[in-house]
Every structure is written in C-alpha cells, then in structure tokens.
Amino acid sequence: MTWNFMCLILSLFLSQFVHSLNNNTTDSLDTCLQDFAFRTLIRHRPHTGNLYNAMLPANLSGMSVSIVRLRSRRLWNRGANFCNFHIPSRTIPVPHVKRLALVYHDFGNWSSHYYTVPGYSMITPVIGFKVFDASNMMSRSVKKLSLNTMGKPIVIRFSNSTLSDGMVSKARCAIFSSNGTLHLGEITLANVCFSQDQGHFSIVVPLKRKRGQWKLWAIGIVLGIGGFILIGYVVIASVKVLKAKKIQVMEKQADEDLVLDTIWVGRSKMPSATVTRTQPTLEDGGLP
C-alpha cells in the first residue's frame, strides 16, 4: 500500500514537471509501472501465457501497461508474440530462470513528454517492453533479465503508424535502451523496427524545414542595408544644407555690419570706403 502511494505521488510529480525528466527519473517511473503490472498479476491469480492489463492512476490516462508470465521453456520453443512485439523462438533469459514476466509499455500521448529525439519528430507512440524474473511473485525485489535471441531480431510492429512507403528511406527507428542511450536505426520495412534486446521504440522522421525562410532573411538584409544607405544620404544632405545656410547667414551679417559709400567710376557705381589715416605725431608731442 505504501509503495502504491509513493508511485502515485511520483506520477503526479512527473506529470507536473515532465519537461525536466532525466534518465534516473524515467527509471523511477518504469519501476512504478512495473509494480502496477506485478500487482495486477497477483490480483488475478494469472494463468501462464495470458496477457493482463494493469490499472494506472487517472493522471496517467492515455498510457497503457500489460504483463504476461511465461515459462522459459515455452519462450525457447515458441517465442512470444504479444502487444506488437514478436520475440523469436530459441530465445533464453539471461541469467536463466524458470519463469519470466514480460512487461509491455505504451506511452500513447505521453510519448513526446518522456522521450525526445533531437532533429526528428515522432510519428508513432513510444512502445517497449522489459523482462523480469517471475519465479517468486511475492518477492519485494524483482530482478531484471536480459534476452539472448541467438542472433535473431525481435520484431516491433507499429499498427497505428502513418509512415508511407515513400517515407521509409527518411524514417528511422529510435531505440531508447535501458541505460539511457539513444540509437537511430534504418527502417527496411514500413512500420517495422528490429532489435536484439528489450527497450523502448518509436518511428521518427526528420523535422521539416520551413521553405522560403532564407528568402525572407535575404529580403530583410537587403532592406536593412538599403535603409542604412538612405539614412546616411539624408544625414549627409542635411549637414550640407545646414552648412550652406550657416554660410549665407554669416555673409548676410557681414554685409549688414560693413556700410560702404558709393562713387561713380565712369558709368559704374562702385563701393567706396572713407580713408582715415593716422595723424603723424612729433617726438615732442606736438603736431606738425
């Protein structure tokens, strides 16, 4: 009961601060989802090979978790084909256990909140699975297992994908491993990914670049340069006009301050200034 309450609080916290998630927080969420799945098995007293859907808190609506318990011998003989995942026959759990549980995740509309691929857009929800030791269902600590498929691929089919045949060459299979690393693999078949082990998966395509954006930048640069040139021309012209007006004012003021007489020289009237000479003075101070 206490662990369920802690998982509920954690899920509420994640729903509010989902954009700041790191790998450790995602692992904590996986642990809570695993706990919900195992409690579903205990509540149903399950039959081996039957798939059961776990009940999740209301704030995780849109996400689904399922669980199935298998014998290792059945996995070796027949493989496993549940929730769009096909694990091939001749697969063994590592380390070997008598019974194992496969927990399937479908993040639905929460996919883009918990997982991102830089430069790509997800066109399918993130789905995945993890493998656990189910030998003792009442144990408080559940051991994680790996799978050895003997070189055969695990097939992941995306039934609700919108990927067309013409987009296969550009699309990539995003593989989110349990250690937090991201791998982008090529897609050879539409809506199908391949893997060698457990993890989470999605089909992604490159983000579309807005066409014509470079034209807008070019137009903006040209207009900016033209604007600077126009402003510079206006400033230079204004300076020249002000300078010319200042010179005119100075000339007018000079003309007003200097009043000259006029005389006739021949048939022309010309300005004439009165000549004033300094009177000579003798050494004894008298006039000549």
Results as ranks from 00 to 15, higher is better:
H105V: 06
L184S: 02
D165R: 13
F158V: 06
K170Q: 15
G108P: 07
T116P: 00
T149H: 07
N179V: 03
P125N: 15
V126F: 00
Y115F: 15
G128W: 03
L189R: 15
T162L: 13
T162E: 08
P118I: 15
I123C: 12
E186P: 01
K143E: 00
S146R: 07
W110M: 12
L184I: 05
F158W: 00
P153G: 06
F158A: 11
S159K: 10
Y120P: 06
V168P: 01
F107Y: 15
G151S: 11
P125F: 02
I156M: 14
S141P: 00
G180L: 00
P125C: 07
N136S: 11
A171I: 02
L102F: 10
N160R: 08
F132P: 02
Y120V: 07
R157I: 08
M137W: 11
S112L: 06
N160E: 09
N109V: 10
S135Q: 13
A174T: 03
S139L: 14
D165Q: 12
T188E: 02
M138R: 15
I127S: 02
N191M: 06
S112D: 11
G180H: 01
K98E: 07
L189Q: 15
G185E: 00
V117N: 04
V168E: 10
S121K: 12
T149P: 07
S121A: 03
S135R: 13
V142T: 14
S146M: 05
H105S: 08
F158Q: 02
I187V: 14
R99Q: 14
H105D: 11
M122E: 05
M167D: 10
E186H: 08
T188K: 13
I187S: 02
A101S: 14
P95Q: 07
T124Y: 01
T162H: 13
L163Y: 03
P95Y: 10
S159V: 10
V117F: 05
P153I: 05
G166R: 02
S135F: 09
I154H: 01
V155H: 06
N136E: 10
N160I: 02
P153E: 05
H113C: 09
F176L: 03
M150K: 12
G108I: 07
S121L: 03
L189M: 12
T188W: 09
M122V: 04
I156A: 15
R172S: 07
P153K: 01
S111E: 05
L163T: 04
S135E: 13
V97F: 06
D106V: 01
T124A: 10
L184E: 00
F158M: 05
L189S: 14
F107M: 09
R99M: 12
W110D: 11
I156P: 03
I175G: 06
Y104A: 09
A134L: 12
S169G: 01
G180W: 00
Y115M: 08
N148R: 03
